[in-house]
Nucleic acid binder design. Structure first.
Lengths: 245, 245
DNA sequence: TTTTATAACTTGTATTTACAAGTTGGCAAT
DNA sequence: ATTGCCAACTTGTAAATACAAGTTATAAAA
């Protein structure tokens, strides 16, 4: 006889502070809490969510770190414009505010399990090598113009049913975080300006030979030895990549 | 009669967790705790510093956020290589380690006081507008190949004799920090791939129309309302821009 | 000697309690 | 109508306690 305790269910393995983080983050992203407005106070959140204040504060601190709120003593937690979550990249148009642009993601190659490419531009850990990778390609549009073409290799380590998920118009990082508790913790990147050729010029609708921004990124996650490898082509004819550091 | 309580001294205004953070950070930077080694455990730090564990954990969490340690449940807090200077560009060659490459800086336009350009790609503070700017251009070589062409606008606020300094083969940031106590604290940047034309193609020896990486950067400093504005062209034919985030 | 189990240790999560410091709205005084 | 005070509210800091989950060294068994 198997005794099911509360510690054994998958959902209850998620710490309470992370559940609150996700709830609040979702509400901020969906506009329930508008930019510039105050979140409910810590004590209110304690009451509503049946948690104690340190737990609520832990969730709020994570929201601070990720840029969703600013806390001010005596006043409260002020909602900020959420970072445009394109892999810790954001883009700015040359003439219009970013919040007004329509973003869309189209999957060019659905996630499929493959061996790592040889040669591969990145150094892999031994564990990553052993398990192969999940490979996917996306094309992302701003106002129906193709802007990003990214090729992703993700270690095929403990990602149950990843290849059966749908990624159209969804954030890869959101899915990794909410579905697998994998969080991006930083990374390294290389940048070049190159000439658009072949698939790149076709997908991004850039004249062959014109400049395209090329980026290789290795993202660190909260899983040891588990990185996300992306090769990104960016059409900067009308938009620029915008970043903070 | 004024009663001096512990809450009134300046030193005791600093929270305990911040004191511990600074102590540990200093020890990491000075090599007392070597990269890859373990910090004392949380309970040991509690005993040594007469603090409770939540306070110690608060300090350690800040060290995690700033990249000085990694925590691993069951094992301890592992010292990391301290983060590289913020905003510093580094480049990697496609085939050789950067440390072996010969870097050289040539001044194209020595620092001179000018009005801010109109139009200017950046938003200025009122103070910056009032005082005008110091303008300079540099060309930087790797192995005698021109790689960076940067155009800098610096607010002409309280920088005595800046225009009489020499910048050949010197770091602008070092001069600002050591000569004027101005430290870079972060910033924002925009990236594009554009076609090389005119001065850019001549200086960087890129065929007209070929891709060049274009970057606009606004660097925040420890002086409120004082930013450094740079427009940078990067020849990525043989090298890539490398960065951490 | 090697393998296995476990105690001791480590960090992670959560609750409870208390006080400090900053903000703001309401009310009383001018 | 305006100003000042203060209570009620907010977030910030800290301590104390308890249990969970992961790591490692040691002791016992094979």
């Amino acid at each position: 006889m198997i005794i099911i305790t509360k510690h054994m269910t998958e959902e209850n393995k998620i710490p309470q502070y992370k559940k609150l983080y996700e709830t609040l983050r979702r509400h901020i992203a969906s506009g329930v809490y508008e930019e510039g407005s105050l979140l409910p106070s810590e004590n209110e959140l304690c009451a509503v969510h049946s948690m104690t204040r340190p737990t609520v504060r832990h969730a709020l601190e994570a929201l601070v770190q990720d840029g969703f709120i600013q806390k001010k003593q005596g006043k409260g937690s002020i909602v900020q414009k959420p970072p445009q979550d394109i892999g810790i990249l954001s883009i700015s148009g040359t003439s219009s505010a970013i919040g007004k642009q329509y973003l869309r993601t189209q999957i060019i190659q659905k996630p499929q399990i493959k061996a790592w490419p040889v040669p591969f531009n990145f150094d892999l850990t031994e564990a990553e090598k052993d398990f192969g990778c999940i490979y996917m390609e996306r094309l992302r549009f701003v106002n129906e113009q193709p802007v990003f073409y990214d090729i992703n290799h993700i270690p095929n380590i403990n990602l149950p049913r990843f290849t059966s998920r749908t990624f159209e118009n969804k954030s890869l990082f959101d899915i990794l975080r909410t579905g697998y508790q994998i969080e991006i913790k930083g990374g390294t990147q290389k940048l070049k300006a190159i000439k658009a050729t072949g698939t790149v010029s076709q997908l991004l609708k850039i004249k062959t030979g014109d400049p395209v921004l090329y980026m290789e990124r290795k993202l660190l996650t909260n899983r040891e030895g588990f990185h996300i490898y992306s090769t990104i082509y960016f059409n900067s004819e009308k938009h620029a990549i915008f970043g903070n550091f």
